[in-house]
Design a protein around this nucleic acid. Structure first.
Lengths: 152, 152
DNA sequence: ATGACTGCAAACTCTTTGCACAACA
DNA sequence: TGTTGTGCAAAGAGTTTGCAGTCAT
C-alpha cells in the first residue's frame, strides 16, 4: 500500500470516528492500516502480530474491540468460514471465499452474481443487513487430491 | 417427522455407512434422526441435548465426530455464521441464513438465485465444493430497533 | 475375534470480561 | 479535567485429543 493511500485510509477512519464522537487513537489507526495493507483477510491473531511490529505492547482485547468498532463503521467485514474461525477483511467490493473443510485454507473468489436479491429478501423481513457473505465449503485442490488417493 | 420418513432417513444413513465400510451405531442413527427431525439448524450442544433424551450418556466428542462424519457423507451441512458459532443443518435444499451481529440470532432465508455460478467458478480453480453457504450479516429486527433508539 | 467406535477427562484455542492506568478531546 | 480507550490477567465458551473399555462386524 502506498503512502498516499495509507493517508486516505487514515482520513476515512478519522472522519467516521469524529462523526460519531469517538476518539482517534494510534491503536485504531494502526489496526486499520494493517487491514488495509493486507490484500488477504486476517485472523485477530495475525492482526495483532502485524500491529505489534509498529506499535509494541498492543493487546489482543484491544484488537478485538477495534475490529468490532471498524465493523460497525463499515470499514471492515467479518467472514465466518464454517470451521469456527473468523476472518477480517478490508476488501469491501463484493467477493466470495472458498474454505477447505480439511485444512481450513481460505481463498478469495470473484463473484459475478449480485448479492442484491438476497439482501432485499432479508430487508423484507425487517432485517438490517451489513452485507452478504458467500462461502463455498469443500476441499481445496491439495486436500481433494489426498482424499481421492486415500478413499478411492 | 413421521415414522416412515425416520425410517427413510435411517436407511439412507445405513446405506452410506455400509457403502464406505463404516459401522452402524445407535449414536450415529440417533444424531442423524435428531438433525432430520429439526426444521432448524442446531449447535453441537443442542444436538447433544436432544440426543441425550433418547440415548443418555452420549458424549460431546462423539457428537462432534459424528457431525463431521455426516458432513462427509453429505447428509448434513455446516453453517459458519460469522460470530464464531457453527450450526449444523440437515436441510439440503439451497437456502440462505441471516445472522445478527449483536445478539447472534440466526434465521433461515429462502434463496431465489442459484449458487451454481459461484460453485462453477470455485471448480475452475481446482476446488471441490460441497455447497455454497450464503450468510447475510447485520442486525435482526429487534436489535436494529434498539440500535436506532440508542445511536440516534 | 478384531478393530472401529464411544465415553471420560483433560487440554487447548479463541474470545470476552473486570478493573486500574493512560490519553484523547 | 472528564471520560473514553487501553493493557493486564483471568475467566469463559466451544472444540479437540489421548486413552481405556465397548460393541458392530
Amino acid at each position: 500500500m502506498s503512502a498516499s493511500s495509507t493517508a486516505a485510509a487514515d482520513a476515512k477512519l478519522i472522519d467516521r470516528l469524529r462523526g460519531r464522537g469517538l476518539r482517534v487513537t494510534s491503536q485504531r489507526l494502526v489496526i486499520h492500516r494493517v487491514l488495509c495493507a493486507q490484500p488477504q483477510h486476517m485472523t485477530a491473531e495475525q492482526v495483532l502480530a502485524s500491529v505489534s511490529d509498529m506499535l509494541p505492547g498492543t493487546s489482543l482485547p484491544t484488537v478485538y474491540a477495534t475490529l468490532e468498532l471498524l465493523e460497525r463503521l463499515q470499514l471492515v467485514r467479518r467472514v465466518g468460514t464454517g470451521n469456527g474461525a473468523v476472518l477480517f477483511d478490508s476488501r469491501v467490493t463484493p467477493h466470495a471465499h472458498t474454505a477447505c473443510r480439511r485444512c481450513g485454507a481460505v481463498a478469495d473468489l470473484d463473484m459475478t452474481t449480485s448479492p442484491e436479491p438476497v439482501l432485499r429478501r432479508a430487508r423484507d423481513g425487517g432485517f438490517v443487513p451489513d452485507h452478504a457473505q458467500v462461502v463455498v465449503w469443500g476441499l481445496c485442490p491439495d486436500c481433494a487430491r489426498r482424499e481421492i488417493s486415500v478413499a478411492g
